[in-house]
Computed example of a mutant assay.
Amino acid sequence: MKNLAFICCLFVGAFACGGGGASDPYGSDASAPDGSDMDSGPTTDAGPSDASAPDGSDMDSGPTTDAGGESCACAASTDLVYVLGDDGELWTYDPTTHDFALVTASLGCAGGSLFSMAIGRDGIAYLMFINGDIQAIDVNDPTSCVDPGYATGQPGFGLFGMGFASNSALDPCDKLYAHTWNGIGGFSQGPDAGRLGRMDADELVLTEIGLIDYNGGELTGTGDGRLFAFAGAPAQIIEYDKDTAEVIATDSLAMNLTNAFAFAFYGGDFILFTESDGDPSYSNVTRFDHDGDGSLTTVVTQAPIRVVGAAVSTCAPLVAAP
């Protein structure tokens, strides 16, 4: 099984992404992006090359080494929110201006419909496909995929939403977390309906943390060690204890999950992508002010794409720019 050091040798200045969804809530039907017939397309500048906010201001996401001295610095542009479209397009979304920018019209992956994605601080993007396979890309060069060596089905996890979270406020090094979905019908909730897992970043070994009450959901994490899910009926933001899978806090939202949905943490807010009420072939963008007044505001009524996956690394700012 290949480790991350091998992957990073393939990617110079690597970065990564996380989120999920398509025509079923994660993108499991034929309308989701199919890597077998993607065409390459133009690229645009994904954003600044250092860990600054999209408006250019300095937004420090915290220390760059853990307590043991391991370097966990942020790769270029890993403070950006990345989103996937139905046709396998990779875009960035700027929460400060609400602008979308095309990175590439083709991810260069051959794995069928996309299911979820997650971005690490090192810039490696992990993409899960509907067959349960995971491929890795560099978002600076997203037209080339490699097999990182993930063995599917461990430990009885099939499909899962995923996201990175730092170890703690003092240890920025991150791990990949998994939120199961059994693939039957839509999303649901109930006692012990799902499982939370954690991926070893060196060997891509997935272990179960514990049972959770949500069958299907997406994950996003923060640079100070928090882990959140976007799940439930009606939709909720759930904060989990990363070590026990216990619920720390729950915020109920006046909205529902749709067939395609995704989210990302940015500057104290959650950016929520759901299908547009008027035309489900596009997405709405909603801002949930988590660390402020708790308001829920629609900021984009029709994105240029239907967002089937979204992610940002733990290099994203923890608070809004002044």
Rank of each mutant, 00 (worst) to 15 (best):
residue 242 K to F: 08
residue 224 D to Y: 09
residue 168 S to Y: 00
residue 173 C to W: 04
residue 216 G to K: 00
residue 165 A to Y: 01
residue 225 G to P: 02
residue 222 T to V: 10
residue 209 I to G: 09
residue 244 T to A: 14
residue 172 P to R: 00
residue 161 G to Q: 02
residue 198 R to Q: 15
residue 164 F to L: 08
residue 252 S to F: 13
residue 266 Y to N: 14
residue 139 V to Y: 13
residue 149 G to I: 09
residue 150 Y to P: 00
residue 253 L to F: 06
residue 212 I to Q: 04
residue 265 F to H: 14
residue 206 L to E: 01
residue 135 Q to F: 05
residue 225 G to D: 11
residue 224 D to L: 11
residue 161 G to D: 03
residue 231 A to H: 02
residue 268 G to F: 13
residue 191 P to K: 15
residue 256 N to T: 14
residue 219 L to N: 04
residue 176 L to Q: 03
residue 207 T to P: 03
residue 161 G to V: 01
residue 140 N to D: 12
residue 221 G to F: 04
residue 213 D to W: 01
residue 255 M to S: 13
residue 209 I to F: 08
residue 167 N to R: 10
residue 151 A to E: 10
residue 161 G to E: 03
residue 173 C to S: 07
residue 171 D to Q: 08
residue 228 F to W: 07
residue 164 F to D: 08
residue 228 F to H: 09
residue 157 F to V: 00
residue 181 W to Y: 14
residue 263 F to Y: 12
residue 152 T to F: 04
residue 237 I to P: 11
residue 249 A to C: 07
residue 182 N to V: 03
residue 167 N to H: 09
residue 149 G to E: 13
residue 231 A to D: 08
residue 196 L to H: 08
residue 146 V to R: 09
residue 166 S to C: 07
residue 245 A to G: 10
residue 141 D to S: 13
residue 183 G to F: 04
residue 250 T to Q: 08
residue 168 S to H: 01
residue 210 G to R: 04
residue 223 G to F: 04
residue 211 L to D: 15
residue 167 N to T: 14
residue 142 P to E: 07
residue 248 I to N: 10
residue 253 L to G: 14
residue 157 F to S: 00
residue 231 A to L: 07
residue 258 T to K: 10
residue 254 A to L: 10
residue 193 A to L: 09
residue 148 P to V: 08
residue 254 A to V: 10
residue 166 S to K: 04
residue 231 A to R: 02
residue 169 A to F: 01
residue 181 W to F: 13
residue 241 D to A: 11
residue 135 Q to L: 14
residue 138 D to T: 01
residue 218 E to T: 12
residue 185 G to A: 09
residue 153 G to N: 03
residue 177 Y to K: 06
residue 163 G to I: 04
residue 140 N to F: 07
residue 255 M to I: 15
residue 155 P to F: 00
residue 141 D to P: 03
residue 226 R to K: 14
residue 231 A to W: 00
residue 148 P to G: 12
residue 210 G to F: 06
residue 263 F to P: 08
residue 159 L to A: 13
residue 185 G to D: 14
residue 213 D to K: 01
residue 162 M to W: 03
residue 208 E to T: 11
residue 262 A to K: 01
residue 136 A to Y: 01
residue 138 D to W: 02
residue 177 Y to T: 07
residue 192 D to I: 11
residue 137 I to W: 06
residue 228 F to I: 06
residue 216 G to T: 02
residue 194 G to C: 05
residue 135 Q to G: 10
residue 151 A to S: 07
residue 255 M to H: 03
residue 255 M to K: 06
residue 244 T to D: 15
residue 181 W to Q: 04
residue 152 T to Y: 07
residue 220 T to V: 10
residue 182 N to W: 01
residue 151 A to Q: 08
residue 226 R to V: 06
residue 180 T to I: 03
residue 260 A to Y: 08
